[in-house]
């Protein structure tokens, strides 16, 4: 009997035991398969970075785990395993190509967004007293909504439970309140 046939039979026995719930046999099988899987991945995706190749090996292990009920111990083990390997390697290559198509290579990563608003680090915070007075000047419903949702940072659900108002009413109130505050702080009446 050749060495490869012997090895295949050993794997088949271990897998049969793993299918029956033998955790030790399963761990042994997976440990024995690792060098084989690494070699197969290197052969099929020679240009892959070591970390990406290892991710692919782990992906194959997870697929093997998911598909283990489809193995028939009366059939050779390695063709079963290699069909999964080919499938996962091809899938990995497909995902890599589709990810690369959407990537833009830049020399330096930007530290912030290109929009003007997030880049106002030297801008003034505004007058907190004016804000307090503006909030106080709001109608009751709008002030309550601003306090709960913006100042106390409650979720809509929490604020609705706390105030007894409906979520829709809170949304309307907070929107109107914010519009009124912007106008007041910009020097206009609410």
């Amino acid at each position: 009997m050749s060495e490869s046939t012997e090895r295949d039979q050993r794997f088949a026995l271990l897998m049969r035991a793993a299918q029956a719930g033998d955790r030790e046999a399963y761990a042994r099988l997976l440990h024995e398969l690792i060098p084989l899987l690494r070699r197969a991945v290197r052969r099929q995706r020679a240009l892959l970075k070591p970390q990406d190749a290892e991710d692919l090996v782990q992906n194959i292990l997870l697929s093997l785990h998911e598909a283990r009920r489809s193995y028939d111990p009366t059939r050779p083990f390695l063709p079963w395993l290699m069909a999964i390997v080919r499938n996962r390697v091809a899938d990995g290559a497909r995902r890599y190509i589709s990810r690369s198509a959407h990537e833009v290579v830049v020399d330096r990563l930007p530290e912030t967004f290109s929009d003007a608003d997030p880049n106002t680090i030297d801008g003034p915070y505004g007058d907190p007293e004016a804000l307090r007075l503006a909030v106080k000047a709001l109608p009751d419903g709008q002030r309550r909504a601003i306090e709960l949702l913006k100042l106390r940072e409650m979720s809509l659900k929490e604020a609705a439970a706390h105030s007894g108002a409906s979520i829709a009413a809170l949304k309307v109130s907070v929107h109107r309140g914010m519009t009124a505050l912007r106008r007041m702080l910009a020097g206009k009446d609410p």
Binding site: A27, I34, L62, R69, D72
Partner: peptide, 23 residues
């Protein structure tokens, strides 16, 4: 995740499975 740790996790979660019958 380390591959050895993954193997351990898979082995620990291995419950008996019902083999698929032939096609």
């Amino acid at each position: 995740m380390d591959t050895n740790a993954l193997i351990q996790e898979l082995a620990d979660s291995a419950v008996p499975v019902r083999r698929l019958p032939a096609p």
